[in-house]
Nucleic acid binder design. Structure first.
Lengths: 191, 191
DNA sequence: AATAACTTTCAGAATTTCCTGAAAACTCGG
DNA sequence: CCGAGTTTTCAGGAAATTCTGAAAGTTATT
């Protein structure tokens, strides 16, 4: 009930309610994010747990321990450990050591552009580079075949090689850019 | 043996040898391409058979039937059928009907830029769009949480949403471009 | 050097994804 | 409407991937 005099200060109870409701909502939203992001991971060729851990830590206010991650996601120690380390290897997580504590804490890279360049680099390494190497080999092997089919094959391989090589360079360039310039460039492209 | 008088016309036998050697080499190179491209498929989140069929048809001089594909790759009818139809659904293969023949032939899109835009569109649909929808939901759900952690979460979700939305638009733009302009733009970027 | 705290590894279980082969369902000419 | 030729479906098996849990390995502390 709002008194006739206008706005009043919220009571302690009101504040408490707001905060509790907020915490509830936040937990809900965050759980959804973690779970859905995990499901998306599959589509991205990243395993579910890895994606979930990443989502969890990206939205964690503080660095977390292996045990906290296990607890939160209800997964085994081995699974948590392997995927945490894999994320560290990617550069998406950092290990933090707190004074006077023996165990490791993990903290996520939260900058969106950083995350993007890391993922782009990794995908290039796993998807583009091997393709390029296969194509180069095929171009070589078919270089001096004289038959028409041979020439057609060679040309097709060359066209693919050129394109993939090009994509590779583009990926490098973009990954190497700072956010500002990239944004500017992209904006021009979108205009 | 080269006669002292200089170059001579190759004999029929010589030509035959060249052609046979060429066909052998071609078969070898092509088999390698098909098999390696299949292996790469896994990394790309596409199943091996689908990638192999695509590789096979991209380098086929003529359209092929289901049975020819089965024979060439040594796979079952069900497998061949499912993946051929999936490739047609993607738009990477076309069905060709030959006069006076009942069965369907399949023919690959060979233009590299076409292939790229098709794959880009499909990946966007499977990887970017669902991510965007998850993010939008999370942004909404966390909009009016008052706690500091709530605000931090909301901001992180918004940053991700912005970026992914941006990527989505970029992908659309690039896919819609013709090869020439895209190349020109990219070349500028690489310079 | 013994203990406790924590990390790493990995064999086998669980789950997910993919493939086979055969049966059902079409399609067309006669 | 029949039957041969062709396509489609799908239950169950095979293969690949991921996860668990426990044992072995490390590192700091007393």
């Amino acid at each position: 009930m709002i008194p006739k005099t206008g706005l009043r200060f919220p009571s302690f109870q009101d504040l408490l309610k707001t905060v509790n409701a907020g915490q509830e909502q936040l937990k809900h939203a965050r759980d959804e994010f973690v779970s859905q992001w995990g499901a998306l991971g599959s589509q991205w060729g990243i395993n579910r747990t890895m994606a979930q851990i990443h989502a969890l830590l990206m939205t964690a206010p503080e660095a977390m321990t292996t045990d906290e991650v296990m607890e939160e996601l209800q997964i085994s120690r081995g699974n948590a450990h392997t995927n945490l380390k894999e994320l560290v290897a990617w550069g998406l997580l950092r290990i933090v050591v707190k004074k006077g504590e023996r165990r490791e804490y993990f903290e996520a890279e939260k900058d969106v552009w950083q995350i993007f360049t890391i993922v782009a680099r990794e995908r290039k390494r796993r998807e583009i580079d091997p393709a390029l190497s296969v194509l180069s080999r095929c171009v070589e092997e078919s270089r001096d075949i004289k038959t028409p089919e041979g020439k057609a094959f060679h040309d097709q391989m060359r066209a693919l090689e050129d394109f993939v090589g090009f994509a590779s360079k583009m990926s490098d360039r973009v990954s190497a850019m700072k956010y500002g310039p990239a944004l500017q460039l992209a904006t021009k492209l979108l205009s």
